[in-house]
Design a binder for these strands. Structure first.
Length: 683
RNA sequence: GGCGGUUUAGCUCAGUUGGUUAGAGCGACGGAAUCAUAAUCCGCAGGUCCGGGGUUCAAGUCCCUGAACCGCUACCA
């Protein structure tokens, strides 16, 4: 018997469940049910990650014990999964005694093998993110992710010798090209592994974090998130087995979102190698559900909350949409329009309707008892052939995790039934008493095809398909029901109402005629008019914690928010020289992360002596935010520029003032100066 | 800046090792039908397969080059 063990990440218990959690879990559930349906032994593990500082703090804030806090909060996930018809085999919690025990066992084993060592470590620590940042990563002295304050900490910690496994991991990836799916994610990891792989810090002193699993060899410490969390995939099944007694590990698939690729494709396999535990068969990274227009704009207001759709239109329709619409691996947009269109056309018009047609025809013509077929003509044979073909597609597609494709294949069978009915027109046969036999055959054939379609869709919509099958007086019990020919004739049909009511959609105004054209290339001649160069003032200067030459500057460019920019001026200026100074800011440069810190623009400077940069000087009293213009060039509407667009032109200095071609740069008529010799370029 | 990917009908996408009239679903339009949830079925879309070169008897499919977009990565004055 073939085995199938799938996992979802364990979700952080403090997080409010959202579409991301739901999608991963639904996908795991559907894949599990499909494998079960086609005859595998299956095991499905999900759960919650319940240690860490955020839990400790949240509990403290509520003045409850952390354990009580997590006991309460993990219910949010459990309840959601129940509502969503998720049939996991086990829900693991990292606070389970069994899990803690196994993590400690693993740590002890690695310690005994010399795979873990201790080392003093100093750095900037962010409580909010529960991690250290290098100097360079900080933004204005704050944590670059949440912007919260950091503190300088010096402490001993324990490290796992992850670096030792770099080559072994690369070899594994090369020998197992489908270990990471989709393949482009594998390439990312191989790229990541071209650089030296560091060892992994796996501890936190209890003085700072007490809510965790103690290191068995030093009880002043607890183990750190990933070491604790990743091991759940093994600890959750090590004392369990399939019905036939076979062990469950290794996993067939670790299902993850693309954001935790590195932890699952680098940390985890090296940990397993060190522990001498077999690796999982595949890691499958899916994409994001995007809601509401462009990610940058908050004002568009077109965002929808996908979870509302589950409440409003039912769990099964919701599951169907998630599974059908997203190609596993890719991002996908969740829109009101797409949802309603998909549900109406596939579930209401095609599937629900054909079921209803057959059901009603049998009810009115045969008093609810399925008649037996007496003949198989060409159209019927064609439908049978199609059904067999779809069966093959389901079996092969599902083992390749081509879920949206499989569903589309099943729907092609549903459409085939509608076509068959149209050809045979049983409603006409019903009016001809001499055609009773033919009518019986048509309805029998159509009913069998509908039955099969519903069985195939059971993993996606467990409840609705069973309701549909009940309308046909049958059910689906597994692989044996996946063949043509289960119906014998004589089955009593049940009661029935339309399975998927059509969603009424307001007549949408005709979509604005979109002119489909790619963004026009930026021409060199257009750059001067597009440049948004502004007077700005440096408010603060800090060293980049992880870069030798970069300062992190906060500048006031006359906007509602202060901008952070990174600038390589350490060789040229001291922080004191920079503070409160007016600069020329290239404001519409596409933001780019520099050593981990987003730089929202770039300041301009000229090439001085000895490779030093000389800042451009706006005239003394220029109001902050004033835009500098090239004389004789009319500025055009602002558009975000890339650095390569800027490189298409050259700015140079003549008589201490700045020119582009022959156009001098001015603030309200006053030239902008830069104290470098003629012909020096400015950038 | 580096590496990788994407760009095919109005929309979302398939297109295997290069080979007859480039496909599917949805939508739009026209028609048929009326058992059914105003659902279904049939027909139709004259798509520069992003642009430009090249290889070939033959290219969406291989090579070069330009563009846009996306991902990873990068101390860019």
């Amino acid at each position: 018997m073939k085995n199938f063990y799938i996992t979802t990440p364990i979700y952080y218990v403090n997080d409010a469940p959202h579409i991301g959690h739901s999608y991963t879990t639904v996908l795991a559930d559907i894949l599990t049910r499909f494998h079960k349906l086609i005859g595998y032994q299956t095991f499905f593990l999900t759960g919650t990650d319940e240690h860490g500082q955020k839990v400790q703090q949240a509990a403290a804030k509520r003045q409850v014990d952390p354990q009580i806090h997590v006991d309460e909060y993990n219910q949010r996930f459990k309840k959601l999964w129940e509502k969503m018809n998720i049939e996991y085999n086990y829900f693991i919690r990292t606070t389970d005694a069994d899990h803690k025990e196994f993590v400690a066992e693993c740590l002890q084993k690695l310690w005994d093998k010399g795979e873990i060592y201790s080392k003093e470590y100093e750095g900037w620590y962010s409580v909010g993110e529960e991690r250290f940042f290098s100097e360079e990563e900080l933004v204005d002295g704050k944590d670059p992710i949440s912007g919260r304050p950091v503190e300088w900490l010096k402490e001993k910690n324990y490290f796992f010798k992850m670096g030792m496994y770099q080559q072994k991991l690369i070899t594994h990836l090369e020998e197992n090209p489908d270990w990471i799916l989709p393949d482009y994610r594998r390439n990312e990891i191989l790229g990541f592994l071209k650089q030296p792989l560091n060892d992994l810090c796996i501890s936190r002193p209890k003085s700072r974090l007490s809510w965790g699993i103690p290191l068995p060899f030093d009880d002043e410490y607890v183990t750190y998130v990933w070491f604790d969390a990743l091991i759940n995939y093994v600890s959750g099944v090590r004392n369990r087995a399939y019905e036939n007694g076979e062990p469950i590990w290794p996993a067939s698939y670790h299902l993850i979102g693309k954001d935790i690729l590195t932890t699952h494709c680098v940390y985890w396999p090296t940990m397993l190698m060190a522990l001498e535990i077999p690796l999982p068969k595949h890691v499958l990274a899916h994409g994001w559900w995007l809601t509401g227009g462009s990610k940058m704009s908050k004002s568009s207001g077109t965002g929808v909350n996908p979870m509302d759709y589950m409440e409003q239109f039912g769990v099964d329709a919701f599951r169907y949409f998630l599974a059908r619409e997203m190609v596993v691996g890719q991002d996908c947009t969740f829109s009101d329009d797409a949802f309603k269109r998909r549900i109406n056309s596939d579930l209401a018009n095609d599937l629900g309707n054909v079921l209803n047609r057959v059901h009603r025809l049998v009810l009115t013509n045969f008093e609810g008892k399925l008649p037996k077929a007496t003949q198989i003509d060409a159209p019927a044979q064609e439908l049978i052939t199609l059904a067999n073909q779809v069966r093959e597609q389901v079996f092969s597609g599902i083992t390749q995790v081509k879920l949206s494709q499989v569903i589309e294949d099943i729907m092609s069978l549903v459409r085939g039934i509608n076509r068959y009915l149209e050809i045979k027109a049983p409603w006409k046969l019903a009016k001809d008493p001499s055609a009773k036999d033919e009518l019986a055959s048509v309805l029998f054939t159509a009913a069998e095809a509908v039955r099969l379609s519903l069985c195939f869709l059971w993993p996606v919509m467990p409840t609705k398909t069973m309701e549909g099958l009940a309308m046909l007086g049958t059910t689906c019990e597994g692989e044996k029901d996946l063949h043509w020919g289960k119906f014998q004739g004589g089955e009593s049909f049940g009661e029935g109402a339309p399975l998927f009511p059509r969603i009424e959609v307001e007549k949408a105004p005709p979509p604005p005629a979109k002119t489909k054209e790619q963004n026009k290339p930026v021409l060199a001649t257009d750059v001067p008019s597009l440049l948004d160069l502004r007077c700005a003032k440096i408010i603060s200067v800090e060293d980049h914690s992880d870069a030798e030459s970069l300062y992190v500057l906060k500048v006031d460019a006359g906007e509602s928010e202060v901008r952070t920019i990174c600038s390589g001026l350490k060789k040229s200026y001291t922080p004191e020289e920079l503070k409160d100074r007016l600069i020329l800011l290239f404001a519409n440069l596409k933001p780019a992360p520099l050593r981990g810190i987003m730089s929202m623009g770039m300041l301009l400077a000229g090439d001085g002596e000895e490779g030093k940069a000389v800042l451009v000087d706006p005239p003394a009293n220029t109001p902050i935010g004033t835009r500098a213009l090239f004389k004789g060039i009319i500025p055009s509407e602002s558009r975000e520029l890339k650095i390569k667009d800027f490189d298409k032109i050259s700015l140079y200095v003549k008589d201490k003032t700045i020119f582009c071609n022959d156009n001098r740069l001015e603030f309200n008529g006053t030239p902008v100066s830069c104290d470098v010799k003629d012909e020096a370029s400015v950038h």
